[in-house]
């Protein structure tokens, strides 16, 4: 609903929607279950990841199988800084992780954005598996297949642990989440954001009206990797352990799934998708040992029957029922 600012008739709806969701998000720790704090911290992290991912998939039309690697890179940067260098101040650690990821994203992206569709997907897959193999092999730095266990970094001298004080961590995640959403929303609605959408719809035309297509794709790639890096950096202290699996393309499949589940044509889609995916996945794995089957079937069903995702489908329904206007 946030996405519809600009249509005065819908201002009220948008305002109400934003307020309700903010209040709901703030209230989660009041449920009093440290498990839910943990779960929703994770959900917000996935949301941020999907939001960033959607800059490529939804707004630029590029499907990447390599975003697990950037997520993993963020997580490993934090883990290595904290354990190998004993560098613990929270914000700088996160900052360095994001910068490192964005830098690598810039290098990889520069090579990848020349290609489209399946070739782009395959190239990102190749790079991500290359890093996977490296992380697996560089035992001294990465702990190989066992990964690295990390103690959480400090925030303003406040020692927090993901297990003992999950509510703290939840609010930290929420703060990052809100900032990311705000920045993301500004970018999407900026001329640059529109230019990306033009590239997605019609790269030829975009070029013809003077948009430097390849350079903008590259920027979009960097932005989305920075988001992945942030999500990964927040993920590491939450779990207290990172493993090379994060770099695997199957892990990147999760963000793809989350984005699609929410609906990638709409700004709100991946945000909702990230939350729903996380909660659903954790729930399904908890109740059945057939969870790969259920998740796979869910993915198939979404692809075939709800290609617009949750938010997209809801929008269409709303539009038909009560005549709310506007798309994007």
């Amino acid at each position: 609903m946030k996405a519809k600012i600009g249509w005065t008739t819908n201002r009220l709806h948008s305002f109400a929607g934003i307020t309700i969701s903010l209040v709901a998000l703030f209230c989660i720790p009041l449920l009093g279950s440290s498990y839910y704090d943990f779960l929703f911290s994770l959900a917000l992290i996935y949301s941020m990841w999907a939001l960033g991912y959607n800059f490529l998939l939804g707004y630029t039309g590029l499907l990447s199988f390599g975003h697990g690697a950037f997520f993993g890179l963020g997580a490993y940067t934090v883990a290595i800084l904290v354990t190998k260098f004993s560098f613990k101040p929270f914000l700088p650690v996160i900052g360095i992780a994001v910068l490192a990821t964005a830098f690598l994203g810039a290098v990889i992206g520069y090579l990848c954005v020349r290609y489209t569709e399946v070739y782009f997907a395959l190239l990102t897959l190749a790079f991500s598996m290359f890093f996977y193999a490296l992380v697996f092999k560089l035992y001294y730095w990465t702990g190989g297949s066992d990964g690295i266990g990390i103690r959480p970094p400090d925030l303003f001298g406040l020692r927090f642990s993901a297990i003992e004080y999950p509510a703290h961590y939840y609010y930290i995640t929420l703060a990052f989440f809100l900032i990311s959403v705000y920045i993301g929303w500004r970018i999407v609605n900026s001329p640059f954001g529109k230019a990306l959408q033009a590239i997605r719809d019609n790269p030829l035309k975009a070029e013809a009206i003077g948009i430097p297509v390849r350079r903008y794709k590259w920027y979009a790639f960097i932005i989305s990797t920075a988001y992945s890096g942030l999500a990964g950096a927040l993920y590491a202290p939450l779990f207290g352990h990172v493993v090379p699996d994060l770099f695997h393309f199957l892990f990147a499949g999760e963000v793809l799934f989350a984005t699609l589940l929410g609906g990638y044509t709409i700004f709100l889609g991946p945000i909702v998708g990230g939350i729903v995916f996380t909660v659903a996945k954790r729930y399904i794995t908890a109740v059945t040992i057939y969870w790969p089957l259920v998740l796979g079937a869910l993915l198939v069903a979404v692809t075939l029957f709800f290609p617009q995702g949750i938010v997209g489908t809801t929008y269409s329904l709303l539009r038909r029922k009560i005549g709310i206007k506007g798309g994007e």
């Binding site: 500004r186 001329p191 009206i209 003077g210």
Partner: peptide, 20 residues
């Protein structure tokens, strides 16, 4: 049309200011 105009005005690269 607007992105074409912004592109011509050299403002298409603005990342953070809302288009509206």
């Amino acid at each position: 049309v607007r992105i074409a105009i912004l592109s011509h005005m050299g403002r298409i690269g603005r990342v953070f200011s809302p288009i509206d």
